[in-house]
Design a protein around this nucleic acid. Sequence first.
DNA 1: CTGTTTTTGATTGTTTTTGATTGATTTCCG
DNA 2: CGGAAATCAATCAAAAACAATCAAAAACAG
Lengths: 250, 250
Amino acid sequence: MLTPKRHALIIELIKQKQLVTIQELVELTNVSESTIRRDLSELETKQKLARVHGGATAIQSARQELSYREKTDKYVEEKKQIAQLAAALIRPHDCIYLDAGTTTYEIIPHLETLNVTVVTNGLTHLELLNQYQIKSFLLGGLIKHTTRAIIGSQALHNLKLYHFDKVFIGTNAIDPSFGYSTPDPEEASVKSAAITQGSQSFIVADHSKLNQRSFAKIAELAQATLIIDSIPADLENKLREQTDIKVVTA
Amino acid sequence: MLTPKRHALIIELIKQKQLVTIQELVELTNVSESTIRRDLSELETKQKLARVHGGATAIQSARQELSYREKTDKYVEEKKQIAQLAAALIRPHDCIYLDAGTTTYEIIPHLETLNVTVVTNGLTHLELLNQYQIKSFLLGGLIKHTTRAIIGSQALHNLKLYHFDKVFIGTNAIDPSFGYSTPDPEEASVKSAAITQGSQSFIVADHSKLNQRSFAKIAELAQATLIIDSIPADLENKLREQTDIKVVTA
DNA sequence: CTGTTTTTGATTGTTTTTGATTGATTTCCG
DNA sequence: CGGAAATCAATCAAAAACAATCAAAAACAG
């Protein structure tokens, strides 16, 4: 039996039973105990399970959860790299604002040991913030069910109650002359207001957003540093005339 | 038997019986007394139980307090009846406040056709509100991870932005002289502030909360109508001197 | 086909877990 | 109070599970 197939079987059985013995796995896969031990060892370092004396148990870490839901999203790997680069800018005990969105979501796992305080308008972030037990504040306001974000005048009002060391915002479009923009004016208002409340503000976006214009303007390029996975050289030069840019270097 | 499985069994039995003897655990798990002793020792340091001479008991300190999700909710049927009675008071296009908690949660399904606007501080309510596509506002503020509620000064500030036709609040304790109370002062503040923002306010609670006092006072009895599943006649008379009461009539 | 690398299963000695035993401590009950 | 019974922590040896090692088998590359 091929190793990946065997690993898949093991993970599947653990998922079903939560707890398996080495003997059960030996019977399931018809390989020796030694091989199973090696498999468990390997899968443990990959955070796919937790070993216990005599077998292994399922692990419901944030990472596994995360890998489960990443299917719906595009450029996940790039977003993770962007998030990592963004997180590297954060210092212990910073107070940061995390905009709703998938790229900002990927920043959360990097916050675990930083003792930061997070303010967000993204309801999708809450579960992960909870899992990492990060001190978190939510903006108040209208719940936009489609994107699960908090918007509206109350949200703007709420933002005035905070000041942030760093602000991380997602965007749908980046254009050399129109700046950062997004389809929903309500969301744009919140993003814009957040930027003005931060000492430093960052736009996190993947390369598919470059050279795009959307309906509602968030801010000028100069108002926030751009963090992106890759960018053509000529466009980078053009943007650098107006703002700072950080590019993921692979 | 694998250690985690055994530990799970032990905790499960303690959860059911509150108090277990070592002998019971030996029979349950078919291991020696020594092993059980070691297990209890280990689980005690993990704060999963408290040892007593001869066995172990469930721990009910705040530390062990089960988080909202895993809390095996009691009196679900009663709460549904209370919720139904509460929902019958709501008129179309009302603006209502729903406190965090399991009883208020049960109100949501009744709102579907009423075109109400809901304001809440309960994150656990969001999924259901989304499902029924109810226009919803969330209070801003600190996220209390254990109960998944919004609290803090920002929440109080947010409440000032609204006025409600009806306010529905949960409580942990109802006492003829101490009024309504709950363990966490921060939560009590939010509940209290919400009550003052409503034209009419209601406390929804099951009968297990009667004649109890908790640490932090929410409000006097007179400040909110009590909605409850059942109540002894003498206590009802005593409470009716101070406030209105609605009882589920089965 | 031949030489190399990878994977596997068996074997080894080591570590962890377990159950029995011991003497100390606590609880019970007269 | 005081002794008996029960329960306890500490210890130790046996059993189970473990990581490390190595040679055979399989997969691979040239």
